[in-house]
Design a protein around this nucleic acid. Structure first.
Lengths: 219, 219
DNA sequence: GTAATTATAGGAAAAAATACCCATACTGTG
DNA sequence: CACAGTATGGGTATTTTTTCCTATAATTAC
């Protein structure tokens, strides 16, 4: 707790969209105890601003040109660990969430966050506390429950599931796969759900791409 | 018109499911002018039966073990062109439909065909006439309307569509793409529909695989 | 200036996919 | 024999995807 009740929390906003920066700024400025000390439109600029302005909290968009937010977070935590970074993106992409957290992000918020929650998160972050968006928390839980995935995930699939995954990689629908394998569509759905679950994939399209990457389906 | 009003139409039934064969047979046998002269449970067997029984019309399932129906059709038309083959499958798969027709099938019926229509198709086929299931006809029309696709299809996409296709190739959902591009999900849907239509793809998974193949998305 | 194309997006409805229940049958394994 | 895992699929509910229709603004082409 560097800054306390008397000193306002110094916030740096990093986002490549001017509108987003403007929106965040105007809102945060209205809050007691929060002061937006600067903004940056990409990771590189953010690093510079952090050095220059020494903010307590950085609100960091992850998708940006020049230097992406993930890299920027790492650099910031390296350069000035006492600065807390809240990752702020439009969607809960599994990969990005975990990478962001591994990179040292204290929080992870989605852009559809309620203003009040944003303020809470900033205040919490400044104290080093973690504030997670419910959706993100849910994904984290999932990761914790089925975590390491030492291997590539393929070996935990059964024979039948590998077979289904191969057909998935050819772009086939559940109905088509069902006919191909001579089973009911319901069974195929069960296999697909199991595949998506075991591989922690968010949808059949990811599964199809995965299948091709692993050579289960012709490129 | 080899066989005419007096001689019954000699039909060979080819399907790997005994139940299907039984169903087709009992029904067709009730019809005047149609005689089921034999049955086969796979393509290889079908070839043999055609040579042996010299049927006028073959009802051919496309999905079978040992030798698939598509190959069997080619072989049959090669061996005995005067035999008319009606492809009979459970689903209107674009590829299979066109391949079947290119292979020399005179008709293409779906298994949910009405018995009466099946009879009509058999009679029509024996005269060399084409009888198409409405659904199949629709797909054929579509192929005719937007046929050759001389190029790879990519060039007919607009800039925005290429952009969307690239994101599709990363496995993103419409919602995710909408956030990424800062437009409504509705707009993304419009783009996706347009892409699928222009490229004649049956679904987003095919589009994703296509995108990767063309380097629009990272492999 | 009119016509065509494109990007945008709403409404409605149908089809597909997904999640979460459940049960059965078969196959090993301790 | 009990137990775990697998393949099979029914039921239900929700979400996503897809199609079809309509419409506006902006751009470009003739």
């Amino acid at each position: 707790m560097a800054t306390d009740t008397d000193e306002p929390i110094r916030v740096l906003i990093v986002d490549d969209h001017a509108v987003v920066r403007q929106g965040l700024m105007t809102f945060l400025e209205l809050q007691d105890g929060i002061e937006v000390v600067g903004e940056a439109s990409n990771g590189k600029e953010a690093l510079q601003k952090v050095k220059e302005l020494e903010p307590d909290v950085v609100l960091m968009d992850l998708v940006m040109p020049v230097m992406d937010g993930l890299t920027a977070i790492k650099e910031i935590k390296l350069m000035r660990p006492e600065t807390e970074v809240i990752a702020l993106t439009s969607f809960a992409d599994d990969e990005k969430v975990f990478t962001a957290i591994r990179s040292g992000a204290t929080g992870y918020l989605l852009k559809d966050v309620q203003p009040a929650d944003l303020v809470k998160a900033v205040i919490a972050a400044e104290r080093g506390e973690v504030q997670l968006h419910p959706e993100v928390a849910k994904r984290l839980m999932h990761e914790v429950v089925a975590p390491p995935k030492e291997d590539d995930g393929l070996q935990e699939l059964t024979e039948r599931e590998l077979e289904v995954l191969g057909l998935l990689g050819r772009g086939m629908s559940n109905k088509e796969i069902a006919r191909e394998l001579q089973v009911s569509e319901k069974t195929v759905k069960a296999h697909v759900s199991s595949i998506l679950n075991k591989l922690s994939l968010p949808g059949r399209t990811h599964a199809a791409l995965f299948a091709v990457k692993r050579g289960l389906a012709p490129a």
